[in-house]
Structures are given as C-alpha cells and as structure tokens.
Write a protein that binds this DNA or RNA. Structure first.
Lengths: 127, 127
DNA sequence: CAATTAATTTAGAATGATTATAATAAAATT
DNA sequence: AATTTTATTATAATCATTCTAAATTAATTG
C-alpha cells in the first residue's frame, strides 16, 4: 500500500459521512497540498478492486465511498440524505432462496426522513 | 403523454432486458429514424420523475432502465450480468424495524452466475 | 552503493455520458 | 385562425472520469 492509498483508505474508512470524490480530494489536500485529483481516482479504484471500500450510488447524487463494515442504507426520497442503519441480516434467507453462488447483498431502503416529513406535512396543511 | 414518451415507456416496460439509453435509442430509431438522443434522455427523465420506470445502476456498467413491477436483482460479480428475481417480500419486516417514513426498498444480490462459476472452477483445476 | 527496473504520481488532454440552450415544430388553448 | 404552451431537434457546453506520457519515487539487483 502506497502512502496515498493508505491515506485515502483512512479517510473513507474512518468517516461515516459517505464522502464524494471531491470531498476526499479536499481532505487529502489539507495534508498534501500538491496532490492531484487523478491520484484520488487511482487509489479509490485500487481500493475498490481490493474490496477494502465500497461505492454507494444514489440516483441523482454523485457517487459516494463507504467503509466495508456490514450495514444497510436509508435514503431520503425527498432530500437525498443518506443514513447508515443495520437491518436484520438476510444472508441465510437469501442463500436458502437462491441456491449456490451467493456472495453478498446490497439493501437500500427509501423513506422520508423526519425533517422532510415535517416539512411536507406543513405544506399539506396549507393547501 | 407525448408520442415519444409513450414509445419510450413501452420499450422499457415490455422488455425484461434492462436496456441502456443507447439501446433504447436504437429501438426507437427503428420506427422513427429521425429521432434524436436528447429526446430519449428527456423522456426517460420524465418517466423517472413520474415513477413509471426505474433506473438500475451497477458498478462499472452503464445505467439501465427497468419496468416498475416489483422485483429484485441478481448481479453476477464476475461478468456483470443482471437477472430478475423475486425474493420474499421485506416490506413488513422493514416497516417494523424502522418505524414511520418507509417508502420502498431496493435489493441487489451479488452472486456468481452458473456460467462464471463453471469457468472459474475450470481455471482452478488447471492451477 | 549504484544502476536498473518497476510502480506511482503528476499534468493535462481526451473521452463519454448527460444536460443546457436556442431555434423549430407540434400540440393545445382561446 | 391566432396565440400560447410544450416537445423536439441540433448543437454546444459541462462534468466526471479515464487515459497518456513524462516525471518522480520506490524497490530490486548486481
């Protein structure tokens, strides 16, 4: 692991914020002002191949990078905010249903976050 | 719904092939040789907003468009192939676990498809 | 240690998918 | 039929990402 690969990994792995490429780049620049965006892409791609991090794509949002530790995602359908959550594990059930070949799964739950629900409720009252 | 919106919808909704923008464009062109790519994008976006179709993003693959009818996806981690499948419904369980605000969920199961499993098995034997 | 080789990073160009803009055409409304 | 609105076209612009070649750094070998 090279210097930058280590640092990019640390940035992604220790944050629960689902950072974008640009945000990761900014953080890396705080310490290494001369670093270049391509280096961030190179190392993110390397880390993805090594399966040390994962990418989270949400419709209409830029891709985000996330630690590997098992967890699911809540996505607010209104403001797009992404939150971590851990639902009951599905591995056993899925394996049973699908036979061989299972590797892992990705579960996203779309919802309205409390803030958006409040906002939308208030709007409804006015109408 | 305009002429093209109807046709784009029909193409996406009646196929189980998870077509890309380019493929949808090609099919539309068979009937309307003069149609332009931007029209496909415009109408796909309109259909997405109207929640008449959905987009499926798989890491490293171009985005695909899919009918709304409830189903889950199997993604081969090796060749990227996408297949439809319907696992046991999770709605009740998720609602119970997360309280209010639930809208819907998206479940992708990553696996090795039979073809890739065979290939990889054969490779292993050689080594 | 010096020299060679390999791998990483940089800088900037190239690509490709998507969106934006302005003009034209079609549809809907008055 | 005239006016207004909406959709479509053609093309330019944008943005994220990848590619390429040169430069730098790290690793390996004699």
């Amino acid at each position: 692991m090279t210097k930058y690969e280590k640092e990019v990994f640390a940035i992604v792995n220790t944050s629960c914020e689902h950072l974008t490429v640009e945000q990761i780049f900014q953080r890396l620049k705080e310490r290494h002002p001369k670093v270049v965006l391509a280096t961030v892409y190179n190392n993110l791609n390397k880390l993805l191949e090594e399966e040390l991090i994962r990418k989270v794509s949400i419709e209409g949002m830029p891709d985000r990078y996330d630690r590997m530790e098992k967890h699911d995602h809540l996505v607010c359908r209104h403001c797009g905010k992404l939150a971590d959550v851990t639902f009951k594990d599905l591995t056993a059930s899925l394996r049973e249903q699908m036979g061989d070949g299972f590797l892992y799964y990705d579960l996203k739950v779309y919802y309205l976050c409390p803030e958006c629900r409040k906002k939308l409720d208030e709007q409804d009252k006015k109408e």
